[in-house]
Design a protein around this nucleic acid. Structure first.
Lengths: 241, 241
DNA sequence: ATGAATGCGATAACACTGATAGCAAGGCTG
DNA sequence: CAGCCTTGCTATCAGTGTTATCGCATTCAT
């Protein structure tokens, strides 16, 4: 009984053709997704854009969910491949963790629709996010091997995953002009010091803490006029930055 | 042209009736949501459960989105009211922050469908989450007033919001048997140490104490010019009197 | 109290969605 | 060549959000 059939069970162009149309459909769906958001990717629109009929989608992906899963997986693996091309030899594992965080945050920022498709609804996904979690676990393991992991491996994975998801989702939920890049680095450093054992560089607060306290206590005093108070508030903002 | 009509434009029971049916519809929709997930709450099902016809929903809420917004707002304000009943007099502001975190996490864990409705898709929401952010800002302000805030107020709000959202969403995304409560407390403590500082920047409460602390911390900063600094010193003297 | 206006209930319908059935044509396998 | 699997295509189904339209009742101004 040949495990490998002696004859070509299927002509090479056959598989290739099917795989090609699959790819074409995925590309079309991804294009619609990025262009018009999730509601724009409908079976008919995808079929139209890919130049075939709606039933073909079901023969290729079985389901609309299957199609979306394929889209998510393709987009994510493409991102991973691009990242791996950049990532050189292994280095400081904590720096690797930071780089990975930055990369996935960048991915979420530049592909919001795709990211929301993957992480937006906790019910689905399983397939795609498992890939991401595997990669994350790799990084965590290297930190553990270096003796720098503060918590248990599985917990560390979940912490990083949750922090990144929260960061990206709130980033996307905030209207564009109000987005604050400090949020991303603050959450990243918070997660790094939570997961790894390396004393955070305690930076001296200086006048910032007192300025914030005074600003919070300003309403309710009457030693300053309205105009003075406004100018003071502006200075306090600068001091607390 | 009377802005306020002299006669009662509408009998009191009229408004009440409309409000009553609104409430009945919201309750029906919430029931469907909790029972069968988001896909179960369809206009026809809601209308059926509330004992009226689909067009009535559009007269009441204008839109299905409007209906869902009303559901989210009702659920969240109900949760807030229940929480406020428990919360006693103000105490340690950092403990307040922890309690608030625990409460919202508990809300997400016990009302997953409702929570996902509110925070699942970053596009919508605005109305509901603003309420939550207001409350959060209150708590942050009290921490700032106590001189215990490590970062700027708006940033602190976003950090807490993002951390909580990430915690709840990953909690819900993990299949039930694998959920690890340590994740929640780890993220909470991480966020607390990121946002707050253990050493108070001001010793005495109120603007006077904050002013004195700021005055002591002023030399060494370079955010203000010489003239600005002199005027600020004068104001701080008045504030600390 | 009477006519008018406004809101509410109900039916029907529209446009669109995901999904399937059924059938003809064509290429590969044996 | 015979048979099967894949593909292309049309038509269709059930269900969705949403709107138009009609009649009735309740309420309001005169």
């Amino acid at each position: 009984m040949p495990v490998e059939p002696t004859y070509t069970r299927r002509a090479e162009p056959g598989i290739t053709a099917r795989e090609q149309t699959r790819h074409r459909v995925i590309d079309a769906a991804m294009d619609l997704l990025e262009r018009g958001g999730r509601d724009a990717v409908t079976t008919r629109a995808v079929a139209d854009a890919a130049g075939l009929q709606p039933p073909a989608l079901y023969r290729l992906f079985g389901d609309k969910e299957g199609l979306l899963d394929a889209v998510a997986e393709h987009g994510f693996t493409r991102f991973l491949a691009a990242k791996r091309q950049i990532d050189p030899a292994p280095q400081d594992p904590i720096k690797e963790l930071r780089d990975g965080w930055d990369a996935v945050v960048e991915f979420g920022r530049t592909n919001p629709a795709l990211y929301l498709l993957m992480y937006g609804e906790p019910t689905r996904s399983t397939a795609v996010i498992r890939i991401g979690l595997e990669h994350l676990l790799d990084r965590i393991r290297r930190i553990a091997a270096a003796g720098l992991l503060r918590v248990e491996e599985g917990l560390a994975v979940q912490i990083v995953h949750a922090a990144a998801g929260g960061a990206i989702l709130t980033w996307l939920s905030v209207p564009e002009p109000q987005r604050n890049p400090e949020l991303l680095v603050a959450l990243r450093e918070s997660m790094v010091t939570t997961v790894t054992t390396r004393e955070p560089a305690v930076r001296e607060q200086g006048p910032a803490g007192a300025a914030r306290a005074l600003r919070a206590a300003l309403p309710g005093q009457n030693a300053l006029s309205e105009a003075e108070q406004q100018l003071l508030a502006e200075w306090l903002r600068r001091l607390s930055a």
